[in-house]
Amino acid sequence: MSKLVTVFGASGFLGRHVVRELAKRGHRVRAAVRRPHDAVFLQPMGAVGQIQLFQSNVRYRTSVSDALAGADACVNLVGILAEGGKQKFQAVQADGAEHIARECARGGIDNVVHVSAIGADAESESVYARTKAEGEAAMREHLGDKVTVVRPSIVFGPQDDFFNRFAEMARMAPALPLIGGGKTKFQPVYVDDIADAIARLIDGEAETGGAYELGGPEVLTFKECLELMLKIVDRRRPLVPVPFFAAKPMGQMGDLVSKLPIIQAPITEDQVKMLKRDNIVGEGVKTFDDLGITPETLDAVLPTYLFRYRKQGQFSPEVPV
């Protein structure tokens, strides 16, 4: 029998893929978003009436309670990479997660998936990483083994904020910066693989409770990621190492820029701090193997959406990867 699944953050990069996967499995989806009028694109992903848009803001507990009324399961995808307006790390990733955890516990919802991040650490100098850890702690405090925490590495896919951002920069900028010398390690993971993992956990096809760390089949440095991107978009740009001490003022400038409406900062000070630690799957944790999923490679997916950054777009000659 299909479930009613409330998905917080349903209109985001990962959210749209999770909604589509849940709908494909026959579940009814309540897409809890701050601006339903901007999430209409979700509805054609299911049958008529299968996907319901619902106005909700995790900063307000009553709003969360309304979104969870009558739900059988819950997925929390809400997170931000940079602060802006009232969207603060503490309010969204820590307090928001606690609101969801409390209301799920109060409503007797015993199937909850909470998406955090590799690197979540209560002792981190990064506010992003600290509040991710606080969100995890709140979930466990109120829900115990009824919540499954999913920690992905850097996520790639058609709407990602990593490869797309640097590919766009490569169109205009004469060079690309390598923060910290480009030595930070990533384990890029395909967005559809994460959505598949979440759906399997909601359907009880894998062990629930505890935490899964999800990374792709390849570990690459920051520099190697940019080199691969440049090869796919067929552009030559020098990669300039920027030490962390020099990247700090760049991040501070980015913080000021991010306060302006409709302007996305290239990098913030908090993101510079995050780059000081590798973002790869740890030892002795549950992974894709425990979910029965073989993750996609970068080579198989990146060319399918980065082609638009080539000089002639989709009409450019095919570039071997």
Rank of each mutant, 00 (worst) to 15 (best):
L42Y: 12
A69P: 05
E283H: 14
F244S: 00
V19A: 08
T6R: 11
A197W: 03
V301F: 05
P243V: 07
G251T: 01
G108P: 07
A199Y: 07
V7S: 06
D160I: 03
V115F: 01
E227A: 13
Y305S: 10
H27R: 03
A94I: 00
F89L: 08
I80K: 06
G251L: 01
L214M: 07
Q50T: 04
V242K: 04
F245K: 03
A10R: 07
V147G: 09
G79P: 01
E269H: 14
I267M: 11
A247K: 05
L22D: 05
R20C: 03
R16W: 00
K248W: 01
V321I: 14
E318L: 15
N111M: 08
R130P: 03
F89D: 05
D161F: 14
T268K: 06
Q43H: 07
V155G: 14
L220P: 07
V219Y: 06
V321K: 11
F307G: 04
G313C: 10
T221H: 05
V92A: 09
L239Y: 04
A133G: 08
A101M: 13
P44V: 12
G70M: 13
L228R: 14
F54W: 10
V189Q: 03
D270M: 07
L260R: 05
D278V: 05
T6P: 05
V64S: 05
R140I: 13
M274D: 10
Q187R: 11
P188M: 08
